[in-house]
Every structure is written in structure tokens, then in C-alpha cells.
Amino acid sequence: MNTVRTIARLDVKGPNLVKGIHLEGLRVLGQPEDFSKFYYQQGADELFYQDVVASLYNRNGLHDLISNVAKFSFVPLTVGGGIRSIEDIKTMLKAGADKVAINTAAINNPGLITEAANTFGSSTIVVTIEAAKQSDGNYLAFTDNGREYTGVEVVSWAQRAEELGAGELVITSIDKEGTGEGYDYDLLEQVTSKVTVPVVAHGGAGQLDDIGKAVKYNVNALAFASVLHYDFLKNNTPSTSSKEGNTEFLKKGMAFGKISPFSIEQIKSYMVSHQIPCRTL
């Protein structure tokens, strides 16, 4: 059976879970541990952590978080952000990560993908591509959480990353990310029609029907952030670990725009009722 995975995506800045729109304007939502526990118990197939300021500061600060989460959450954990060397990967695997996701360093030094795949196995190495549509209809890859222009064309980069040894690709749509307008289906189709490694769709999920649409383009996994986080906040009292960051969103009460929050349980029952093969508890 080829099942579609449901991945809870947690963007982390310092001690806090954050969420932006188009990867920008980050709002503090609470402590990542609380959200992680909730998603694990609800049946998330995987947890994906991105240190959104790691490339900026040249380090991944998620070591302690991962090592805490790995003690109670027995599903795959993937960590991205600021992974630049074999040593960085070792550190994250030692902390309890199962896979690492590389974007900036992969573009700057593609040889790292091959070296990492040879050392740890392809399936440990995920390449993340942050894509933005250009006026000519082509997609270009960005780095540093969508901040840096590279001029690299997305589809050929995806193929190259596979050749270099990436075991999986996470395709993030910068245009859709945080908007709740649905995934960028054109982007997904362009990539999945050209690669044979698993593809994770990320950025834009806002309604349950977005799942059915994305699956038509042969994606192997769907990442969800805002919809799940806002669902958590509807049902739980958030705690923030520090005063650091923009907490206005939490203080003022929350407005979710186009996003209709839903839970992992709702995702799974949607998939089951639409004959999308998936893991059920």
C-alpha cells in the first residue's frame, strides 16, 4: 500500500512555535512541545521542525527541543534550518531526529547532499525547496526561509537533488504559505511528474478539500501548519516560554482569515472517506 502521510509542520524561532504568512511576519503561538504532544497523540504520521532563523544566525537551535520531543513522540522527526555539514547532521540525529532537511546549504554546496546521503543513507536526507512563481510562469528557488533569491529553477533543481542523493523533497510554496488558499497545484504537478523520490507538499492548506486536490498530483505526504496550530489554539490555552517575539496575535484573540482550522483526526477521516490510503490509529 502507498499511503499519504500527514505531517505536522512546526516553525520554531528561539523557544517559541511561530507562524507567518509567505514565511514572513512571524507570530508567536506557544511552546512547540505542547503542540508536538497534541499532534503525536492525535496520530500525526511525522513531525517536521524548521528553525526559521537558523540560516540567518548560522546555527540550528533545535537540539534541545528535538531531544525532549524524542522522549515522548515515537514517530519520525525531521529537522531543518541551518544544516550545513556532516557534523550538523550528526548532532541532529544524536538529538533524536530521524531525518534532516537541507535547503540553503544544498543550493550553495550541492555536494553536501551526496556526501550526506553516502554517510547516512538517502532516506535520512530531505531537500527542501522554497519555490516562488515568477511572472513568466516558471518557479525559482529561494533560500534562508524565503529571503534570498538564488535564480535556481525549481524543477531542474528538484531533479538534480534526486540525482545527488536526496531521499525526499519538501516543496514549499512561498506564494501560498500561511494564506490558506490551497497548495500550489501547478508547482506540485511540475515537480512530481519529474522525480521518483517521495514529494511532500507544503504551504497553503486551508480547507479539508485541499487534501483531495493535492493528492491528485501524486504527492506522497502533506504538511500542515496553520490549520493544525489554530485548531490547537481553539481547544487549548497556549503558553509561551518567554516574552520574546510578537505575541500580539495571542493577546488580542485570534482571527484566522481564510483558514478553517482542522485537526489531524479530521484529516484522517477526510482521507478515509475519500479513499485516500493513509495510516489510521
Partner: peptide
């Protein structure tokens, strides 16, 4: 096999 949507590695639940 790209035609059959056969992905390798298998990464996921079965």
C-alpha cells in the same frame, strides 16, 4: 517507475 508512480525509497506507513 515514474509512469506507475512507483517511488523509491519507501518512506512512510504501510
Amino acid at each position: 517507475d515514474l509512469e506507475k508512480n512507483f517511488k523509491v525509497p519507501q518512506i512512510g506507513w504501510n
